[in-house]
Design a protein around this nucleic acid. Structure first.
Lengths: 224, 224
DNA sequence: TAGATTGTTAATCGATTAACAATC
DNA sequence: TAGATTGTTAATCGATTAACAATC
């Protein structure tokens, strides 16, 4: 697994060498998108991928993709495309998310179980290091490789495991209470799967996923 | 439930009257986003919302929000904000998704169960009219208000119920096969929760959801 | 009235796209 | 070599933002 690219020439042209620079919102979003497809492509053993193929899967224009990538280095081979494995490594480096990140999961119901037993998070370097629930029947049972703990342990575990990200797979009624505890314990990113509107301090980011809304968007372009 | 807005003046200023016009990708995406927050706000009984509040929840600039909305009419009240209920109605009209839409769900495992028993889709006018699985033990059991059917019934049901959208909550190994059947039956939008890369004809849209990738994106802005 | 928030303008910045030479 | 695809330019379009008058 090599971290070097190209022929080592003109290092001053690569933004990878300027760790102070922050990516524009759009670039970061698209790079994440590429990473998603590249990870899937790697799983099925694809070795190279062209900007055209990436465009089909990500719905991002192929010129835009080449432009985004060439800003950080010459990752592709003309006439061939991009090496999937090395592009994954490069984008992770650009997004500074090459390492492992510890996350906590809340809720061991159907959604929580689905999340814990899939490798959607694991594939991207996220490790679920704690699962919480308040229902007594669920506490103590095993989910994936973790034993479900009671929410009362939350504060200690977050500190011990240095957890920055929490995923909420709980009913809307329980969401705000848990969010408050999480903020209190020092969690900075909350991924909210409930349909509750969460109130958090400005230094905490809430990311709300809404499949139905994505669907409305897709449907609009089908209908017009 | 009234569909009229304002005082009925200057109808030529409203793009709602130009059904031939197609929204820009960005506008449609943001309107969907607003709809998500508005729907949540409505659930907790919020009657009005300001562009500033919407901005906090959607991470879209408040000026941008006012600009997006004012392009379609004068929906707000100065000094007060926007009426939540009527803004939901307006945006649905703009996105042409005011009605009910029938969708089919594939997979009655943990994820499928979570989807079928939540109201994430119902809240946005999507009605799950059929649930399929291949596992015999699951076929015939009830999930939400539907009985799980065997995938072999797929073709007939899609035609009968006029289904345009299918949600895939199945293992990656099964995804492509089901996608092929869906395309064959005439489904035009596939919402893919598996981590398989799906190959479909150009007139079919695949929407791949990836929470982990969204998380990488959020993490980048936390780390920098 | 006073305070708040919309609707709108103007100026800047980033995204998008077509086109094509470079080169694998 | 011939075909394919990258890296890059240039031109256009849409997004972003600050500022502020209009007005609820």
């Amino acid at each position: 697994m090599s971290y070097t690219v190209g022929r080592g020439s003109q290092p001053e042209e690569s933004s990878l060498d300027k760790p102070g620079e922050k990516l524009a919102l759009g670039v970061a979003a698209r790079l994440s998108r590429y990473l998603q497809v590249l990870t899937q492509a790697r799983k099925i053993g694809k070795e190279t991928i062209s900007s055209q193929e990436l465009a089909e899967y990500t719905h991002v224009n192929s010129t835009q993709i080449r432009r985004d990538l060439s800003g950080f280095g010459k990752f592709g081979k003309r006439g061939v495309g991009y090496n999937v494995e090395s592009l994954v490594t490069q984008i992770r480096k650009i997004l500074r998310t090459s390492g492992q990140h510890n996350i906590a999961l809340f809720g061991a119901g159907h959604l929580g179980t689905a999340i814990a037993t899939s490798d959607i998070f694991g594939d991207h370097g996220f490790r679920i290091v704690a699962i919480f629930d308040v229902v007594d029947d669920r506490v103590g049972t095993k989910l994936g490789d973790q034993v479900v703990r009671h929410s009362s342990e939350l504060h200690d575990v977050v500190e011990e495991e240095e957890i920055v990200v929490a995923v909420l797979a709980v009913p809307a009624s329980a969401a705000q209470g848990i969010a408050d505890s999480l903020v209190d314990a020092g969690v900075k990113i909350i991924f909210n799967y409930s349909d509750a509107l969460l109130n958090v301090p400005p230094d905490v980011t809430v990311h709300a996923s809404s499949p139905a809304v994505d669907l409305l968007y897709a449907l609009y372009f089908y209908l017009t």
